[in-house]
Design a protein around this nucleic acid. Structure first.
Lengths: 257, 257
DNA sequence: CTCAACAGAGAGCGCCGCTCGCTAAAGTGA
DNA sequence: TCACTTTAGCGAGCGGCGCTCTCTGTTGAG
């Protein structure tokens, strides 16, 4: 689990004092273990029933302890849920990073990462919903998870940047984004990768597409709309890649409308 | 309220027997009125606290009646929520339709509809979440709402189709979608508008983009990412319109990466 | 006028998140 | 070693939830 970053530790104090520092005393070891067990049970129940069906009481029941005892480890149900959220961001980011083969062609890398993110999401739909669905009411997540939440889109950025350095990017076509629409902080974040504002805008759209198409598939919006979700997803991936200048190839298509 | 369609009436029996048939007896009139009042109170509470914070008991309390009495009107909380969902789909569809000026240029129509949908969504974020966020666990919505849920994307389709009939569409460029990926039912639905599978695929993506960018904005995923959400949204609209062949104009952009 | 359909109330079931006060054990410093 | 603090866990309990059931009074139809 790659959690952490200073902010996260500050807010999720219960979790991290238990998990991060190498446990020395027996009490600390027991605490770390139980914390992990609670998280594991919660994760299981999240996978089965979704966030709405996850209750602290049932987690406690599964672990054979009083529900009130769980509050020694997580200050609230929301904090438990936030921990699972961080875990989910971490996992989907890792799935993206692991799927990326920097030695391969940029189109292949791009498609592989997209597919890996989709595969993880289909296998972890409730975790996906936690990240990209309706936010849980009392959640403190946004700023906590910024670093870990950025790993997946940053993996996409790296592929485009590598292609740029290899000078295989096509010139960008189509409407242009007002550079002022992009947050300077975002440009700073991508500084090492030398992204123009226009490329940044398109990267944001690509990330949004990746998340959006998966969401549509998971939430049933593609029912009676698409017949082959995987093929449609690949199409979306290629379309977004090409929009960023990745050298995807395609035959000429006739007029639409 | 444009609810209805056969399916909806069958499933949401409580609601529609109360609302649809012109009330004759005093009892029927009272029932219709109370049904509306319950829906209105629920809508208010949804707008304030979101779906998670909406309880049948608090609705009953607001209306000064026993919570058990509400069950005479809605069989369950889920059914009440589903009614609100149908209402939301109807409203966002109407917002799209009303914003569309068929006599205007297709690019202007396209942008106007996108902006209207965004405006409605920003003003009704919890209703938006009901439609496009994480689905509520026990909801029966999908097939019920098919007709009414289709109005918004169909408005987008009509603009493109009109542009096609007026022969102002540009040839489509970029990667091509495997026609087999699109559900034939979707093509039938757009039959009157003479959509090719390729145009249909791009329309689905445009609809997905519209929903996705708004979702990102509402759920905070654009924080520290974009600086001017409205401008970025317009950019997404133009980008998707151009991808469908709508004659948006843009200057040539330099290389990205 | 009779009788069935119906609306509403209230009690109650088993959940839920969360709090509080208590006990017993574990760790700590003199 | 022993007093003292910190901690883990428990059980009772609060108010709220969705939902069911039974009972009563009213409305509308034949």
């Amino acid at each position: 689990m790659h959690i952490a970053s200073g902010n996260a530790r500050a807010v999720l104090s219960f979790l991290y004092t238990g998990l991060m520092n190498a446990p020395r005393t027996a009490r600390e070891r027991a605490r770390a273990e139980l914390t992990r067990e609670i998280l594991a049970a919660a994760r299981r129940q999240l996978g089965e029933a979704g966030a709405a069906g996850l209750s602290l009481r049932s987690v406690a029941r599964e672990l054979g302890m009083a529900s009130s005892a769980v509050y020694r480890y997580f200050a609230s149900r929301d904090e438990l849920l936030t921990s699972l959220l961080v875990e989910a961001y971490s996992e989907i980011g890792e799935a993206a990073i692991e799927a990326d083969r920097p030695e391969a062609a940029p189109e292949a890398r791009w498609l592989a990462v997209w597919r890996a993110v989709r595969a993880w999401s289909l296998a972890n739909r409730h975790e996906y919903a936690l990240m990209y669905g309706t936010p849980v009411p009392g959640y403190a997540a946004p700023h906590i998870t910024a670093e870990v939440a950025g790993r997946m889109p940053l993996t996409l950025a790296r592929i485009v940047a590598d292609a740029g350095r290899a000078a295989v990017l096509r010139p960008l076509t189509g409407p242009e984004c007002d550079p002022a629409a992009i947050d300077p902080a975002m440009l700073v974040l991508l500084e090492g990768e030398a992204f123009t504002p226009e490329a940044t805008a398109r990267l944001i759209l690509a990330w949004n597409r990746l998340v959006g198409v998966i969401g549509y598939e998971l939430h049933g919006h593609l029912k009676n709309v698409t017949a082959d979700d995987a093929a449609f997803f690949d199409y979306a991936a290629r379309s977004e890649g090409a929009n960023l200048g990745l050298p995807f190839t395609w035959p000429t298509v006739p007029d639409g409308g």
